[in-house]
């Protein structure tokens, strides 16, 4: 890989494939994802619904539904082999080495347990501390995620908090055992626009203060620009472009990434039409021949169809899967 994460990467993913097998169909959700993440680095995975970004994220802590998921490839997080680890060992890794912030804090929190208890049980589970010590730590965590009158909020149930506070509580749970890697699955999608930016700034600050690696998934380009060091664009279960956030946002190379940037609202665009990408993403339960984006691509030709384009590196730190890229760059 051209991107150099240093000698000891926090996350190392090689040839990750995830399939969902059911009686009716096999859906190939992730088809060969490779990447590395350095300690203390933040990566944003961009893509539309169904591109495999959430599945990739969940694969990093093996949280996809165990019965129907087939996972192949190599995934190492903090030195642990995530693909091969027995379920018991996975339970020790989850929450301690890697933890996740979910999209919808209303449904991701247990409605009949208090916030304090949901934080404390995680600490007790992993560190075996006393109830009183866990409660004390829970209070500290609520203060860390800047929940006002934290002491009172410990005894609150999820339905008694606003959406923003709930997501802060969710982050507090995820951080309770100081994980090395924080995963966030569209952490701001369910929130009001004003609250979104607060949560993003909080995540950014916590990442820097606690020195975690962060991988988050979004379809919101603004979110990506706000907190990511690097961005990866996903399409049909593959990373089709990857690079430093500023360079990629300013000059996307892959036609799909360009389409994605073109379909986004910026300031000063009043009156102009948004460009859209024609067509729809491929059905992942059917085999895809060649470049998955070719049917929708304005630059596609016969030569796109025989094989999946190999990764090309047109500039340092940038990777793209498109045979036209040398022309584009």
């Amino acid at each position: 890989m051209p991107h150099d994460p240093g000698a000891n990467p926090l996350v190392e993913v090689r040839g990750l494939n995830v399939r969902f097998v059911s009686r009716d169909a096999t859906v190939k959700a992730v088809n060969g994802v490779d990447f590395t993440l350095a300690q203390n680095e933040s990566l944003c995975i961009l893509g539309e619904s169904g591109s495999g970004k959430s599945v990739t994220l969940r694969a990093l802590m093996r949280l996809n539904p165990p019965k129907k998921t087939v996972m192949e490839g190599a995934v190492r997080v903090g030195g642990h082999d995530i693909v091969a680890a027995p379920e018991k060992a996975m339970a020790d890794i989850r929450g301690r080495v890697v933890s996740m912030v979910f999209q919808e804090p209303m449904t991701a929190l247990d409605p009949v347990f208090t916030i304090g208890k949901q934080i404390a049980e995680t600490i007790i589970r992993h560190e075996g501390v006393s109830r009183a010590e866990a409660d004390r730590r829970a209070l500290g965590l609520l203060e860390l995620v800047q929940i006002p009158s934290a002491k009172r909020r410990l005894a609150a149930y999820p339905h008694e908090l606003s959406g923003g506070l709930r997501q802060r509580a969710m982050i507090a749970i995820a951080l309770s055992c100081r994980p090395k890697l924080l995963l966030a699955d569209e952490p701001t999608t369910a929130l009001d626009a004003t609250v979104q930016i607060q949560i993003l700034l909080l995540l950014r600050r916590l990442q820097q203060e606690l020195g975690m690696g962060v991988i988050f998934v979004t379809h919101d380009l603004g979110v990506a620009g706000e907190i990511a060091d690097r961005v990866a664009v996903m399409y049909a279960g593959r990373f089709i472009e990857e690079g430093p956030v500023a360079a990629l946002m300013r000059g996307p190379l892959h036609p799909y990434a360009r389409g994605l940037m073109g379909a986004t609202v910026h300031a000063g665009m009043r009156g102009t039409r948004l460009t859209t990408i024609p067509g729809a993403p491929p059905d992942l339960s059917r085999p895809v021949q060649g470049c998955a984006f070719a049917p929708r691509c304005p630059q596609a030709g016969e030569d796109c169809l025989p094989a999946m384009p190999e990764l090309r590196s047109p500039a340092p730190g940038r990777n793209v899967r498109c045979i036209r890229v040398d022309e584009a760059a």
Partner: peptide, 14 residues
Amino acid sequence: NQDFVNTLRGKGLR
């Protein structure tokens, strides 16, 4: 089937 069960697994609960 509810989301919070996934959160519980994600926290490492057995």
